[in-house]
Design a protein around this nucleic acid. Structure first.
Lengths: 219, 219
DNA sequence: GTGTCTCTGTGAAGCAGTTCACAGACGGAA
DNA sequence: TTCCGTCTGTGAACTGCTTCACAGAGACAC
């Protein structure tokens, strides 16, 4: 199966306490860049409300979207623990509220709270495990399987029934690491096979188990 | 430029102390598997002597070699902080001596030593930054650039002049994430252009700056 | 309604890298 | 020396995805 989002992306009790003790709040409109790859940064964010897309960019304009962070999810941990330039770009998908915590805040709290530090280490372990999985998928899996996984992943995010995904095919292509045209063609054949139903700006899943098979989750 | 290996892969003073306080020593022959992807594991290793290759496997036999760990380098951190199955395979390239530290050892030491925990967090930050870089390279760069980077990376490892690399083209292909044939053809053209010299089982670099350009390190 | 804009569908050509096939080169063992 | 196994080089066919090109279909503004 694919991993449970809450375990990987969400904060534990103790990390939430850390935020409430030290964080500053940030409010942003939709489609605003919170930080960009190669910006200097040393802070961690938690989403209070809204959603934030995390993506990798390349100088020719290509983009690989890696994740969407929603309420309760934490991101920005690389530059928090290893201050320097950001390794990814974060932008809001809708109006969002975030809490921000700096490297200094962290040092102050964690230096006399070992169990907080241990929880952060576990979070980092889970995060690295997830990144490793992403590398696996990208390196070894062909586009249809990767696309199937991304669809299932993104649908599992939306709590409501998890059958419908609101996303243009262009954006979905960024998640799958492919062109819009390639994604469109694959979705068309799946649509013809009754696996899903496409419409302008959204996709409705009809046959989850077949998509599971295509994704290579063999069970 | 490409990252300095010692910063990312090596242990800090305090982490070395942790190993000397709690670790168990392991000795292995050449070409022995230390652990394999999907094995259960919860321990961290440091290389005392020899070298260990870290690679990702796929069920059809494909392999992506991601790194080589040498004396002083640490690996296995994912399963240390997030006990569960291994996300990669580790095998010795030559007879090697390692020290091993378990999750329990770590908890014992780090739970009353906050600055050790902070150093471990920084190490994890650097490690994630490096993984992110790998994902970037794999997703966005074409084979020749990726191959150039891997050559420069692997040559920087060997301290001795760093001009000669002892590695078969088959193994190099695993590092570049491509087939032996594709790598062989690229090396041939580079050889014809005087960038390097190939021979059975090794590659000698002649024109570092041209390879730098091909690798996309524009400076 | 009409116009415009973005999203979707699809076909044709191109290309980077794989797969397959085989030949020659080197090194070690007998 | 000869033989054998592994490593290297290269050509031909194939394939998965991109690039380019264009047409039709919602959605929204007026």
């Amino acid at each position: 199966m694919f991993p449970s989002h809450d375990d990987i992306k969400s904060a534990s009790e103790r990390i939430l306490e850390l935020f409430s003790a030290a964080a500053r709040e940030v409010t942003l409109d939709a489609h605003k860049v919170l930080f960009e790859e190669n910006d200097l940064g040393d802070s961690l964010f938690i989403v209070l409300d809204g959603s934030v897309e995390i993506s990798l960019l390349w100088h020719d304009g290509r983009r690989l979207s890696v994740d969407v962070m929603r309420a309760g999810h934490i991101f920005g941990e690389i530059a928090l623990f290893d201050p320097g330039v950001r390794t990814a770009t974060a932008r809001t998908l809708e109006p969002s509220r975030l809490a921000q915590l700096t490297h200094d805040d962290l040092l102050r709290e964690a230096s006399h709270n070992p169990s907080l530090a241990l929880e952060l280490l576990m979070m980092m372990g889970k995060r690295m495990r997830w990144m490793n999985q992403q590398l696996h998928e990208y390196v070894f899996m062909p586009l249809p399987a990767r696309l199937a996984r991304k669809l299932l992943y993104l649908m599992a995010e939306d709590r409501d029934g998890a059958r419908k995904l609101t996303l243009s095919q262009t954006d979905l292509a960024d998640f799958a690491g492919a062109t819009r045209e390639a994604v469109s063609k694959i979705l068309s054949t799946w649509s013809r096979q009754g696996i899903l139903k496409t419409s302008r700006g959204s996709i409705e899943l009809l046959d989850r188990s077949t998509l599971f098979e295509i994704a290579g989750y063999d069970d």
